[in-house]
Design a protein around this nucleic acid. Structure first.
Lengths: 225, 225
DNA sequence: TATACATAATAGTATTACTATCATAATAAA
DNA sequence: TTTATTATGATAGTAATACTATTATGTATA
């Protein structure tokens, strides 16, 4: 049996739903590749159009601008991660085991998921690490947030916060700790590879050390005192 | 007695030293204002030139591009913060007290420092919160880092890591914890004000709660077990 | 067969991110 | 005092970016 994974996206993220057409799927697929390759600042719809073999105007029919495309792919990533968190912690009773699973899912390299054809999850993971925060670090966060564009991120954060509370109902900062885990899983990885003296893993460049750091951080904080 | 604070900047950050001329100082002063006002993406040298009453080409004589200006002002901020950390923890023996001071300096609103005339530290602090990470989240981090452009950030991180080790010599992740404190001091503040459900302080919007969260996080992690 | 629809092809605009040149005023060295 | 040097101003120009608009064409659907 073949299972196909579809993540329902907020309709405000696009002008025309990219998963419904060939060109739309190509925009996502090649968009991820190109952003990964040249970085979000250098990325333009014109270059993407050339890669795909279509025109700039063609891409504008799907996305208002490149920032919306970035929010789209980050939102997709958070939705997918939440699916993986829920799937992989299903039937686990011990919240400590769940939390370790969450940290591992967040901080280690992604293997390409066959359930999604046009999305390369490994590249996407690397984009989230290097460009993810640019989705919300803008002057129009508040408006974007009112349109619920960041809901997948917030939902994931809430899922993790719930596991934290399951572990220790009295812990006072479940959401902040959850967002800290998410952000640091990515940022420590980025620092390790690019600004190694900001971490303790610069030499080995081993992402399992990021996992150890985060586990230590989290479990020290939430253990019952 | 009047004390004037000068922070020595890496010469590679600029083409012509902005502190040495009237126009240069205006570029910094009005640059901070304008980036704060319209955000780094919308910020252009042309708009800045109009604000100052000079020309675009005039500003290009000081900075290669707007990204270099961003690195310049963030580097200045980290240098200034390190000065404040060293100054404020001087003569304190207890590393726990020192660490609390560091967290407070990082996470609470800055009062404009009279020792620097052309820099509004409060605006700068807000720029660091919203735009700071864009200084290093680029495709050319490695080159920029080789030119030592991020040295002030790394130095500050090292200073904090040393205090952590002073508290507990056996703690395994002093640098990663230091960079986590720095980043989270800013990011939790940003989330609190813009994406409140990612934090536990959305309702009160009280930065002292960010301080409490960070203190709890740090001291749980580094206490001797 | 009509028509709705996705895409392609083309053109055009304001703005961005620069570079280059020349003139002029102020300042410092000879 | 003359001569350089330096800082700035004024102006022009270019390639690329970030779009919008229009028209034509092929293809699936009613």
């Amino acid at each position: 049996m073949e299972v196909q994974l579809q993540i329902k996206m907020n309709e405000k993220l696009f002008l025309r739903n990219p998963v419904e057409t060939e060109l739309g799927r190509k925009i996502i697929q090649y968009g991820i590749q190109l952003i990964h390759e040249i970085g979000f600042e250098s990325f333009t719809f014109k270059k993407l159009a050339e890669d795909i073999g279509t025109t700039e105007a063609g891409i504008y029919r799907y996305f208002e601008n490149k920032h919306r495309l970035l929010i789209y792919i980050t939102a997709w990533y958070w939705g997918w991660l939440q699916y993986r968190v829920v799937f992989n912690t299903n039937n686990i009773k011990d919240p400590a085991v769940k939390l370790k699973k969450v940290i591992q899912l967040l901080a280690t390299t992604v293997v390409d998921d066959d359930k999604t054809i046009h999305i390369n999850e490994d590249l996407l993971h690397q984009i989230i690490i290097a460009e993810g925060s640019k989705a919300y670090l803008t002057k129009h966060v508040l408006e974007d947030n009112m349109e619920q564009l960041f809901k997948p991120y917030k939902d994931l954060c809430a899922v993790i916060a719930d596991i934290i509370l399951e572990y220790n109902l009295k812990y006072k900062y479940p959401r902040s700790l959850a967002s800290t885990i998410i952000e640091m899983a990515h940022l420590q990885n980025y620092f390790m590879n690019n600004l190694p003296s900001l971490t303790d893993f610069g030499k080995s460049k081993d992402e399992l050390k990021v996992v150890s750091f985060l586990e230590d951080l989290v479990f020290s904080s939430i253990r019952k005192k």
